[in-house]
Design a protein around this nucleic acid. Structure first.
Lengths: 147, 147
DNA sequence: CAATAGTCGACTAACTCAATCGACTTAGTG
DNA sequence: CACTAAGTCGATTGAGTTAGTCGACTATTG
């Protein structure tokens, strides 16, 4: 039930971009440093997120990446699906990857996997980057006040 | 967020053993056929489950595998952890694999991963093989009555 | 003692993951 | 207009994991 590092990096990058939304575009390098992600690897990830429509970019000096819509309109589930595919623990209960389950005899399990899928999807679909950015800002402020 | 085939096979095998609990031990071959799992691969899986204490076995004719305790006392989470390790999407929120998270700046995400882990764990820990076997029997009976 | 059935460790082929590289295109600056 | 900063793109790689196989061994029963 592991998340790939790509998925993790992608959500961290999206969070970083959300924190700086409506400022200048962010360089790959800056995101890379802020979130400690290998630059060359991050490049691929951002490109993939751009192709999926979540990011826009500008080339040349003062270029960089920025969100294509407000962070409140992007949730974690979409991002993870772009990077890692369906959220379901096994394909036959996936909403995005339909597949017929040939194992009638183990249908007792199928219901369970469905529950898991739904729970995970619900949590991740509810979490917007707006909210995550807010949580992060609050955590940082708390730390500065000395907790 | 995928389950490994090993984890899936293991839970199917445990379900099959639960369905025949308190009868004769089941041969690897019979489980393999009933649940459509490669025999030689299943062998490894059963051995691993045995070493973890969930199964016992008897050699020789009329031998086979059987549960070491009633299906009501075994839940899916344990089985998956034996095969695939921690349920958590990333290590820093795992209960079983403790690791320090060096990314203060992305703590907004940590809370989310924790929610996911807890939700998954709760569902899988609640599901016993007794219950799953019951569901399976009901589904089969329903199918026989012609639904 | 022959046949059955689990045990064990080694092995491998295929695949995925994480990451790197080089060459290219585009955009702004002096 | 030349230079440089920055994103784009495709290919490749190395390590590790996964899924599965194999052969030789041990224990049990009839």
């Amino acid at each position: 039930m592991r998340l790939s590092t790509k998925g993790e990096y992608a959500s961290r990058a999206m969070l970083e971009l959300s924190l700086h939304h409506e400022e200048k575009p962010l360089h790959i390098r800056d995101i890379s440093k802020a979130q400690d992600i290998p630059e060359r690897f991050l490049e691929q990830i951002l490109l993939q997120l751009k192709r999926a429509g979540y990011l826009r970019s500008r080339k040349g000096p003062n270029g960089g990446y920025y969100l294509s819509k407000p962070p409140a309109e992007i949730n974690v589930a979409e991002v993870i699906r772009v990077m890692d595919g369906p959220l379901a623990p096994i394909d036959c209960v996936s909403v995005t990857a339909h597949e017929v389950c040939p194992h009638e005899s183990s249908c007792g399990l199928k219901g369970l996997w469905k529950e898991v899928r739904d729970a995970v999807a619900k949590i991740m679909e509810t979490a917007t980057f707006e909210e995550l950015a807010e949580r992060t800002r609050a955590a940082r402020a708390g730390r500065r006040r000395g907790a």
